[in-house]
Design a protein around this nucleic acid. Structure first.
Length: 450
RNA sequence: GACCCGUUCGUCUAGCGGUCUAGGACUCCGCCCUUUCACGGCGGCAACACGGGUUCAAGUCCCGUACGGGUCGCCA
């Protein structure tokens, strides 16, 4: 059986991590089975839908590396892919429903008669879930008054203004687009009996449903766009790798059932399956997401690292054609969890002036041995006849011996004098990259502070 | 409130009746490596929500309770 999945976002102006994760599961499932992934825009609610708000979502998906076989920008045989342009299709389906006597008018709106019987959702993740819509819908809970009131269980499928309602268009589109597997958030589980009733009234076999658990924030409530890590474009801006984000999203609700946690997109594609999806909601953990990104960073080829870092270097004013950049990036890769941290680690190498971190400076200047240490460093390093990775360390050792201290006593002052901070990249390679002249210059500049 | 779903370390999870004195990962804490910063290595803290069953045997099956989440729109 061929597989066709879909992601059907409404254009809200943000690609939310929950939505991206749903998209990912659908995409992964389709790709794993060699099937198709369809993108459809649910913009029936015209007020909040703009081209721009949709582009944000498309850009997010593209950045993550999810391609769609049909949908906005690529076309396909089942278009149009914006619900706002599919009115005639909905009209056609509504006529079918009307003919079969499944609908009636109610104050200008069209309602669908809900059957008075148990409807069972056979969910791939959640198992069988049964409900009687007529019974259920005959009462409604009013949030404001906290009261149950009588209600019409028959669902509205068309508004008096002619607009169609989600449940109806969702079902029609999935039928028309030949969707075989509907993978969506568990918040839709309770809606699914309505959809099943619609499928039956239309005389169409429903697709396979899989409702995936929700991602919650640290407080255990639904993630909102204010929560850290909620918006995909922020990952991009902060220097996360797309594959790392995919990796982390996949892990939120899916497991490969072994101890592997770091997956490339390709591996995810090979291994993803609905049987690995679990039933309970998960809380988003930014720290773990950072760790996953760091792991992906470590695995990047030098070329890929350079390419991914380029925008961040540019923003920091580091010339990417500087011959020292590749070496500097290697120094940064192990201590940055995100690309945005890369410039912080290596900026001092490319800076004309050392930018001193006051706390680091204080730490060094408060020691009365520091002046002597810096003097020894200047003397030793200035006199060096060789300046290579291998030669610098012995030179510093010799300088330390000249004032009868251990090398460790010189490293911190040297670090702060040259790099401006007690933390940062590996010192010796930085010295090598900077060159003898620059290092001595920086040491002398720092000596004046003492 | 009614209905639906869920409940293993703080968090993500493994576990599909015996191999569980419950495994891995993140975080945190030690130690080692490093005469610098990290990476890394090793180790530690830490969980089967509760109560009843079923069974020779239950984290694993069943039923309750509690807690959490979801749905109940002429939003999607």
């Amino acid at each position: 059986m061929s597989v066709r999945t879909r992601f059907a976002p409404s254009p809200t102006g943000f690609l939310h991590i929950g939505g991206a994760r749903t998209a990912l599961y659908n995409w992964l499932y389709a790709r794993h089975h060699g099937g198709e992934f369809v993108l459809r825009v649910e913009d029936t609610d015209a007020e909040r839908s703009t081209a721009e708000s949709m582009n944000v979502i498309l850009d997010g998906l593209k950045w993550l590396g999810m391609d769609w076989d049909e949908g906005p920008g690529v076309g396909g045989d089942h278009g149009p892919y914006h619900q706002s342009e599919r009115a005639d299709i909905y009209d056609r389906y509504l006529a079918k429903l009307e003919e079969a006597g499944h609908t009636y008018e109610d104050e200008g709106a069209i309602r669908f008669k809900v059957p008075d019987k148990m409807i069972t959702v056979k969910d791939t993740v959640c198992g069988d879930v049964s409900v009687n819509l007529k019974e259920q819908g005959s009462r409604r809970f009013e949030q404001e008054t906290k009261q149950e009131v009588e209600a019409n269980p028959d669902i509205v499928i068309k508004r008096p203004n002619g607009g169609y309602i989600f449940h109806f268009v969702n079902v029609v589109d999935d039928i028309e687009m030949g969707i075989t597997h509907v993978i969506r958030g568990e918040d839709h589980l309770s809606n699914t009996p309505k959809h099943l009733a619609l499928y039956e009234a239309l005389g169409v076999d429903p697709p396979i449903f899989a409702h995936i658990p929700l991602n919650l924030n640290q407080n255990g409530s639904k993630m909102s766009k204010r929560d850290e890590g909620a918006l995909i474009h922020e990952y991009q801006e902060n220097g996360f790798l797309p594959d790392a984000v995919n990796n982390y999203m996949a892990l939120l609700g899916w497991s490969g059932k072994d101890d592997q946690e770091i997956f490339s997109l390709k591996e995810l594609k090979e291994r993803f399956g609905l049987s690995g999806v679990n039933k309970s909601n998960s809380k988003f953990d930014y720290d773990k997401c950072l760790w996953v990104n760091a792991e992906h960073l470590k695995k990047l080829s030098p070329e890929a690292l350079a390419a991914a870092s380029a925008p961040f270097l540019e923003k920091a004013g580091i010339p990417s054609d500087d011959s020292r950049v590749p070496a500097a990036l290697e120094l940064a890769r192990d201590r940055a969890q995100r690309l945005i941290e890369v410039p912080e680690v290596i900026a001092t190498i490319f800076a004309d002036e050392v930018i001193y971190d006051q706390a680091s400076v204080d730490k060094v200047t408060s020691k009365d041995t520091s002046a002597q240490a810096v003097a020894a460093l200047i003397a030793g390093l200035e006199a060096a006849t060789e300046w290579t990775l291998d030669s610098i360390k012995p030179t510093i050792v010799t300088a330390a011996e000249s004032i009868e201290v251990k090398m460790g006593m010189l490293m911190l002052p040297c670090r702060v004098a040259v790099m401006g901070s007690t933390s940062g990249a590996d010192l010796i390679p930085v010295l090598e990259l900077l060159g003898q002249e620059e290092v001595v210059k920086r040491l002398k500049g720092f000596a004046e502070k003492l």
